[in-house]
Amino acid sequence: MNSSTSVPARTVLTAANLVKVYGGKTRALAGVDLALQSGESVAIMGASGSGKTTLLHALAGIIVPDGGRVSFAGPVGPVEVSALNERDRARLRRESFGFVFQQGLLVPELTALENVALPMMLAGYPRPESEAHARRWLDALGLPGLGDRRIGELSGGQAQRVAIARAQVTGASIIFADEPTGALDSQTSADVMDALLHSTVGQGHTLVVVTHDREVAARCDRTIHLRDGRVHTASGEPVPAAAAPGFEFVGEGWDRSAETNR
């Protein structure tokens, strides 16, 4: 839907036969296979307890699966996410992945601008550069002039846009969103999804959304339904290409090569 055919897609993340068991008996994932292409949006749906959040956490390296493997096509070569230790997985999340949570989960003491600048500072960029780039993201997402506000001073939709900016300020190639519109009304939800899709898939990045909302899922390129920890049905085809035109906010001042040098 948001993708175009200008750049050939490549597989950025693969999961093979993922298994995750909690407490020795609750099988959250029972052998999931999945491949994510660059520039596509994928919705993961399923009933409560079907394993969708566990799948997202395993793909993102938040948890380690008990079986199977997750491989990420990193900028300097393939990385087996599931084989990394905690420190390296944290680094991978910091440098290559972005996250949007249901409630935003922004740091309440920090301003919107500081929240967005946080991942860049964690990646080692100087604060002035981080904040300058963060401000450009806030402007691009329709929040000009709100950078100095605390999170408690923003509406739910505004806070979620701040979270979207935070997820992508470092140029993450895959964005994981867990119920990003779960706490929003339908109109705000649609606006937030607009911002999320345009700023991720529109940039040639990959978006993985865990959602209960059919309308949210319908806006993604394909939908994976989980049941009892397995892929029950999948709709849509992997996207052949990425990088939709017409979204021009990540501009000068951001040197992607710097990320890999640090």
Binding site: F101, P108, L118, L122
Partner: peptide, 16 residues
């Protein structure tokens, strides 16, 4: 705890 968990998921080193 929710903020701490979110920072951890963002990749902020735990010692930080």
């Amino acid at each position: 705890r929710d903020i701490t968990v979110s920072l951890d998921r963002l990749g902020m080193p735990r010692e930080m």
